[in-house]
Nucleic acid binder design. Structure first.
Lengths: 336, 336
DNA sequence: GTGAAAGCGCTAACAC
DNA sequence: GTGTTAGCGCTTTCAC
């Protein structure tokens, strides 16, 4: 293993100077610096990150904390895209990305804070985790800078990134209304989830604005689960045969609902129009192609990483970053 | 920050003993050990990985080296599943997983070997990368244990994991033949890719076994690209209208081919039967649902991680691990 | 501009 | 069973 000591020996100077030269301090003679760089290259010097991080008490590492890396999950590609976006930015600034999942946390009784400390992680992006998780609470109360994806939460070292979920839901609902739908049901996610609350608000506001009274039980909660969405769709449509359109809080649920609708011998969009949320790859390949609200999760991951780094460097950073969304008109909604 | 020094002070013993107790050496008095553990817990001790890895000259880290974490890619979910599988095993043995992509390697002119050294990575899983990449060559020639996904390569510190691609392709082709197809085209990947070569062999062998002569130009190469597969499918089917079935070397290409077929006003499986390869989530949601060859990439990632750890611990390990595959009959193949 | 020396938190001979 | 000591590779005062 080549160390700065080897370079120093070779150059006939002290390791201090080598260190300074390599780190681009400006109190090093230009000629000396050049010589050091040449030697470093020649003998194949590679900085030892562990040593650096030990002495500097920080490491160039971002954490990303997820619910889990599921075996059969990930169908929606969201985590992957988030991760890609984070990684792509992290790499440009020479940072590493370390993964941690909440399932493993509970399994081994190690909190996120412990994990981050142990692994010298200077800040974390948190995605897809319920804020009522005690470990998450601990994390948010800690000194560690955190960027939350899709959930807003107050705190000194906390900021968040998401689209304007309420506005997006409102636009989706208006899209349906503009296609002359009057009876619009909603398949929402989890009652306690921030995104679900926001999306409900947007849906409601759109109806209110257009003077449509929302009947009771037009909104069902399927926990973002496919199976449940299937059942709920059947149940909702069975209960309210006047419904002509469905707004779903995720594409995965929308896809299940579409399946349910087909199994009820109804067709899309002839009998029931449907609009999803997220724009996952599957939605483009379904038949009919699903009209949905696009979220750019790659950009979201990137934005989260940028934000996190700012916080870690004590720059003033916005508390909340809103990303663009867009209605993607495909074939699952028809004009009445 | 709490260190073993603090524990030592508190317990009135030396740091050595603390270290030994914490690391479960058996030359520590049971009572002492217990006391140390209690104090550690009480004052919230967290081991410093950087210090450990510095002194032990190794870190519990696996690298995973990929082509890239694509912005709009990842549709097939393969990398995600590979990663999940690796991560899930790595975590049970308390290892970290570090990512590195070849795009970034070239971008910043840092080889994988450099990356691994710098980041104290003891071994790497390599996936989706051409072996003619000079950096990959360097890696494979290095002392670093490597597990290759989907490509076999000889070497002292190298082993690999995949399904039996030839056999799987053979079975897929036989499946088509058993449905009385006589004119079976193939949309393959890259001519130089190991998997493509194997899959071609299997396809050819199946035809040979059944006494079917393979006409010229029945096999086209679409580089695993969707666009290209679309064009190639049209071209192949236009050129050989007698073809009734297509074997595609990836689901993504199969899906594109399906699109091409529909755009030619032919229907699936009435006019053309089609079988894919991989079983990505999309294939289940297409219309008709795509018959395909299942690969369990989660298991593959897991197997790779297990294998890599064995190699890192100098255990005797198999050179190549074959995972199970399975034909998944869905709706895109019909009996003639 | 450069160097000597201390020390980050930890493990591992070696001695007792 | 336990302690003393050295040292991993690096950065950073502080002196010159």
């Amino acid at each position: 293993m080549v160390t700065i000591k080897d370079i120093a020996k070779r150059a006939g100077i002290s390791i201090t100077t080598v260190s300074r030269a390599l780190n681009n301090y400006d109190d090093v003679n230009e000629a000396t610096r050049e010589r050091i760089f040449n030697i470093a290259k020649e003998i194949g010097y590679i900085p030892n990150r562990a040593a650096q991080s030990l002495v500097m008490k920080k490491s160039n590492r971002l954490g990303i904390i997820l619910t889990e890396l599921e075996r059969n999950g990930g169908k929606d590609n969201i985590v992957y895209r988030l991760l890609s976006g984070m990684y792509s930015y992290a790499e440009t600034v020479n940072y590493e990305v370390a993964l941690y999942t909440s399932s493993s946390a509970h399994q081994r009784e190690k909190s996120f804070v412990q994990f981050c400390n142990e692994h010298n992680i200077g800040g974390a992006v948190v995605a897809g985790i319920r804020t009522d998780d005690p470990y998450v609470k601990e994390l948010l109360n800690s000194e560690l800078p955190c960027v939350l994806i899709d959930l807003e939460k107050e705190g000194r070292n906390i900021s968040s990134v998401s689209i304007d979920n309420k506005q997006a839901a409102k636009e989706a609902t208006i899209y349906l209304i503009d296609h002359n739908h009057k009876h619009i049901g909603m398949i929402n996610g989890r009652k306690a989830a921030a995104v679900s609350i926001e999306r409900y608000k947007g849906y409601k506001e759109a109806l209110d604005d257009k003077g449509i009274v929302l009947p009771e039980n037009y909104v069902v909660y399927a926990d973002f689960m496919e199976d449940m969405a299937y059942d709920m769709a059947k149940e909702l449509l069975g209960r309210h045969p006047e419904i002509t359109a469905l707004f779903c809080a995720s594409d995965l649920m929308a896809l299940s609902a579409m399946k349910a609708i087909k199994d009820m011998n109804l067709s899309i969009p002839e009998d029931i129009s449907i609009i999803g949320f997220d724009n996952i790859p599957l939605s483009e390949y379904s038949t009919p192609a699903l009209t949905t609200v696009n979220q750019d999760f790659y950009l979201m991951g990137e934005a989260a990483a940028i934000q996190l780094l700012k916080m870690m460097q004590n720059e003033v950073a916005k508390k909340h970053i809103y990303l663009e969304h867009k209605i993607l008109a495909r074939d699952s909604v028809r004009m009445i």
